[in-house]
Every structure is written in C-alpha cells, then in structure tokens.
Design a protein around this nucleic acid. Structure first.
Lengths: 172, 172
DNA sequence: CACTATCTTCAATAAAAAATGAAACCATCC
DNA sequence: GGATGGTTTCATTTTTTATTGAAGATAGTG
C-alpha cells in the first residue's frame, strides 16, 4: 500500500472513488453474473477489472469496492478458476496483480461445464430409475407415464446436443 | 377435500406419500428450475404435476408436497404466467384443477424473455453511456477503454443474435 | 532463520430470498 | 343477500446465501 505524508503524519492513501464509467461496468456485471448464480461481490470485482487499464492488487479491489478481504480473496479465486481473471507478474512487486480476461465466454462455458452438464447427466440417471419404477404401474397410467419420461429424455438429449454447439459458437 | 370416517369421527384424508417416481421427478425439476432462479417450491409443484396422470387441485399439492397455501398459490401463479401449467375445467367441481404443460421450452423462453432480453437491452444503454464517459479520458487509457467497451458491445450483439436462434431451436 | 507482507480459510454475522398462514378477497350456490 | 368453499395477498418468520474479519498458512526478505 502506498502512503502519503500529510500534516506531518503518515496516512493510508484514500482509494479513489469509483468513476461513473466504472460504476456502469460494475453494475452491468453484477447483473449478468447474478444471472448465473454468482454473488454480487464477484460481479463487482470482475466489473472493475474489466475497465481497469492497469493490473490491480487485492488491496486496490478492497479499497475501491469497499469489500472485505475474504470476499476479495474468494471472489478472485472463483474468477481465476473460471479463467475470467489472470494473475500478471509485476517485477519487484511482492503482491499479486490481477487483470480481467476479456473473453466473456469464459463465464458461459464455466456455467455449462459446472452446472448444466453435470445436472443433465444426473437427470439421465434419474430418468433410467424412473422407468424401472414405471414398470410397476398399472395401465392406463403406466402408458401415460412412459410417454412423459420419454419426453423428458428427449429434452435432455436435445440439451446435450445443443450445448457443444453453443460452446463452439461462443468461444470462436 | 374428501373425507373418510374413522372411529365414528370425520377426519381429513391423509394424502398419499410421494412415490419414488414422483420424488425423482420433483428432485429433478427442483434442480433445473433453481438453475434459472426459481424457488424450490416451484420445482416441487411442477415436478409433481409433470408425472401426475390426473389434474391436481391446490389442496392436492399442499397435502402431498407439504407446502403452505401461500407457496402453492404463488408457485402456481408463476407457473401459469410462464405457460408451464394450465387450469383445466372440471365439470361440477368448484376448485381449479391444474396440469403441467409438458413443453419444457416454456421455461427457457420465459427466462430469455423476462431475464436475459431486458438485461441485454439495459446493457446496451449502459454501453452508450460508458462511451460518452470514455470521451473525457486521456490517452493512452482512452484508447484501451474504447476497445473494451467495443468488445462489450460485440458480446451483447452476439447474444442478441443468438437468442432468437436458440428459441427457435427449443420451441420446435 | 526469524520477520513481515500477503493471501486463504472458516466460524460468526449480516443480508437476501423463500415459506408460512391469517386475513382479505372473490365467486358461486342456495 | 348471506353463507360457504376456494384463492390471493402480504406481514412475519424461517431458511438459505453471502459477507466479514480474525486466525492460520504461505512465501519472499534480509
């Protein structure tokens, strides 16, 4: 952390208030990332990094966004795990510096990989179990139920087909 | 509500416990609908209706899922608004009877219409404001910032292009 | 190696979201 | 019109989720 001398006393430098541009970016990412289940603090961090023209340290984030140490650390961890934030090496500097990876597709593909895909797989197992259960039913419900299960399976397959396509479209 | 006589006293009929098949369906829909931000109770209601071979009343849902009156009413309201649940008329019956609309695309299109689309539009406005803000900046940050804003716009446009396509794919 | 700056973790707290149920509302029947 | 069965609404409570910050771990430094 840098210092400035004032009145002969050493004080912590007050972090610059967020500019209107930064606020727009932050609000925007809070909204989009909340949509895929990410907490506000993660949106704040990514939003600020997205419009930052220089790498920022965790202290910068804590000071300017006024979030806690824990939130900053955890948010960065998540963003790194998703590939949306990178650590850049600053020679001579001890602390890590972070920059945003500008490829927003990172979020979409992480969402698909971490949330959608596993859920579809579990659903497929469920569907199999549901079918063995349905065997025990009596007509006419049995028939109706099989039709519905079949429909579920159909949707899941459609999803599985579609996801790689979406990914390809996004990443390119 | 039906009644049964027991010990000479009129009692409420105990609702049938959920079958394994019903539980699978319910858990499955809880998971998927939570993914698009819908509460558990909505997933429960839709899940049970999806595998129900007969229209169910609100009382049925309350009794079998053990949810409150309010949750049932609000959940059904939401599901109706999305087109995922229909009211069917039962002659002679006073209370409403509900069935699931089996087209799961209803959820996806509602999500796109209610969450994604408006958010993209607001983002476009933000982007415009960000650009006017960026005009005030000094080089070299100015240039970098314009590039980033341009990239944001690019992604939003890509999203706007993609959504109708996804919708078409889903609805068919 | 001892020291210090930095980062991570996690139990406790705060904030946000969902569920509850009583009261208000509505429609139908007699 | 009044009574009754059914539904919606909404203030309160409960549950879930996110944030905080101090303690612990880690790594660079002299």
């Amino acid at each position: 952390m840098c210092h400035i001398v004032m009145n002969g006393i050493i004080e912590e430098e007050k972090p610059a208030a967020l500019s209107p541009l930064e606020i727009e970016a932050i609000e925007m990412f809070i909204g989009f990332l909340k949509l895929i289940g990410l907490p506000k603090s993660v949106g704040e961090i990514y939003g600020l990094l997205f419009v930052a023209t220089k790498p920022l340290t965790m202290d910068d984030l804590i000071g300017r966004l006024r979030i806690s140490l824990g939130a900053a650390s955890q948010g960065l961890k998540l963003l790194r795990s998703v590939g949306a934030v990178k650590v850049v090496y600053s020679p001579g500097e001890r602390r890590d510096h972070y920059v945003a990876d500008l490829a927003l597709s990172k979020f979409a593909s992480a969402f698909i990989r971490d949330e959608l895909d596993p859920r579809i797989n579990r659903a497929m197992e469920r569907i199999a179990r549901m079918e063995t259960e349905a065997l025990l039913m009596d007509e006419p419900d049995k028939k109706i139920t099989f039709q519905r299960i079949e429909r579920l399976r159909h949707w899941m397959q459609r999803g599985q087909k579609m996801l790689p396509w979406i990914l390809k479209f996004l990443v390119r």
